[in-house]
């Protein structure tokens, strides 16, 4: 995205476009990546509720894929995930490995 010059910025840094946080991609901060193991998923949606960002897709009442553009790798989803029979449906993997 081309950065705006000082003549183009909104006075007082007021954001006039609703939902524009979607354009602000923060996924590059991540050092650990959550990986979804669908076979252990019970569709409880805990991960979706607990994610402090909006980095987990939900469609038709079902958990979707991770939106890595926004995932900061905090690990909250992996911690909260109950999984199936003691097996987590989210595991954290170090980025770059």
């Amino acid at each position: 995205m081309k950065l705006k010059g000082w003549k183009e910025v909104t006075p007082g840094a007021v954001v006039t476009k609703a939902g524009s946080a979607e354009e602000f991609k923060t996924g590059s901060w991540r050092s650990f990546r959550p990986v979804w193991l669908e076979e252990n998923c019970i569709q409880c949606m805990f991960c979706w509720i607990f994610c402090p960002d909006m980095a987990i897709e939900a469609k038709n009442g079902k958990r979707g894929v991770f939106k890595y553009d926004y995932c900061k790798g905090c690990g909250i989803c992996a911690l909260e995930c109950p999984g199936k029979k003691g097996k987590k449906a989210i595991v954290m993997e170090e980025e770059g490995k």
């Binding site: 010059g5 000082w6 910025v9 840094a13 006039t16 609703a18």
Partner: peptide, 24 residues
């Protein structure tokens, strides 16, 4: 016309807002 006030402005934009203030 919903708006947000007081967003975080990181080093990629802070100076542009300061320059705009100076120009005003």
């Amino acid at each position: 016309h919903p708006v947000s006030y007081g967003p975080l402005i990181l080093p990629d934009y802070y100076m542009e807002f300061r320059k705009a203030h100076d120009a005003v």
